[in-house]
């Protein structure tokens, strides 16, 4: 029995092998040698691709169709995990929190990083120092930056509190008030928007001077030059940053995790206060590694992947109408 089974696979293997050999016979010995060397050079990547990309992709796709907690055997349940999201209030909450961050956070950081890039593109002295200052916060490690902002936004002793107090505003309690937790995180994101500024700045420097001068000669005001020359010229960068921003927000995790843990009273509850910082990736983490529901978490990961793909495609498609390549 065993022998015949082996023989079967062997013959299958042989036909496949002979086919590929026949195909390779068309190659000259030199091509064959090159092929071998080439494969040898990328062999580590091939192993990595199979073990750390292809296998986990297939496995998580499979998990997503099963009921699977780490210790229990996997039970095939078809699309039930995917159907579950429509009845899962926390999923909808996490999705709406993420959309909030995209609509307000990403757009605000695009507008402000473009504005900062315009400032940094002015021809004045000391500009290189200003550029460093605007950029530096973006390379502060995420955890350090978030901790710093937990302290800056501290409602009793933080410096933002003093500053607001000086102009007569009582600052909100950023960590306990579900209305203010997301704006708090947006401020943190804006502090680290240096990368967007740099990308916009390089785009501004690529805008042909002749184009701006031509508009100036035609009597275009500063605002008109900005609106009808500069903004269209950097629109491909806006598309790029918008897509990166959307992807980044779906993967937004470390800041939200540290922020929620720092909100004090409920250190163990992710997404606190009141699920207001329960973003998509945070919820996925919660389902996967707190509830150990690997099947549902895998489905959530795939939904995220699909949503990212669709929104990237939609943004690229719509950008044909408003961006100039």
């Amino acid at each position: 029995m065993e022998k015949s089974g082996k023989g079967h696979t062997l013959s299958l293997g042989r036909t496949w092998l002979s086919k590929s050999i026949r195909r390779r016979e068309a190659w000259s010995p030199k091509t064959r040698r090159n092929f071998r060397t080439g494969i040898l050079f990328i062999s580590l990547w091939i192993i990595g691709f199979l073990a750390f990309n292809l296998y986990p992709i297939l496995a998580s796709l499979y998990y997503s169709f099963t009921e699977y907690h780490i210790m229990t055997p996997k039970i095939w349940i078809g699309l039930a995990n995917y159907a579950l999201v429509f009845e899962d209030p926390l999923f909808l909450k996490s999705l709406s929190n993420t959309i909030y961050m995209i609509v307000f956070g990403v757009s605000l950081s695009l507008i402000l990083s473009f504005s900062c890039a315009i400032l940094l593109n002015l021809k004045i002295r000391g500009q290189s120092i200003y550029r460093v200052i605007y950029f530096l916060p973006s390379i502060v490690p995420t955890v350090a930056a978030t901790l710093l902002f937990l302290w800056v936004l501290n409602p009793q002793m933080g410096f933002l509190h003093i500053m607001l107090g000086k102009i007569g505003i009582v600052g909100p309690d950023w960590f306990k008030d579900p209305v203010w937790s997301k704006p708090g995180l947006i401020i943190l994101n804006l502090w680290g928007m240096g990368q967007g500024i740099v990308v916009y700045l390089s785009g501004l420097q690529d805008v042909p001077v002749s184009l701006v001068e031509a508009a100036e000669l035609d009597g275009a005001s500063w605002w008109q030059r900005l609106r009808y020359v500069t903004i269209p010229m950097v629109s491909p960068i806006t598309v790029f940053l918008l897509i990166m921003g959307v992807i980044g927000m779906f993967q937004y995790f470390a800041q939200a995790y540290v922020f929620a843990a720092g909100s004090g009273s409920m250190a163990s509850v992710l997404g606190s206060p009141l699920h207001s910082t329960l973003f998509y990736s945070v919820y996925l983490w919660n389902v996967g590694f707190m509830q150990l529901d690997f099947g549902y978490a895998s489905a959530l990961a795939w939904i995220m992947f699909i949503v990212i793909m669709i929104s990237t495609a939609l943004l690229l498609r719509s950008s044909k109408r408003w961006a100039y390549y």
Binding site: P56, I57, S60, Q251, G288, F294, A301, M304, I308
Partner: peptide, 12 residues
């Protein structure tokens, strides 16, 4: 490929 897709099988 987002990290979240491969995260669970790799953890297992």
């Amino acid at each position: 490929l987002p990290f979240q897709v491969t995260m669970i099988p790799m953890y297992v």
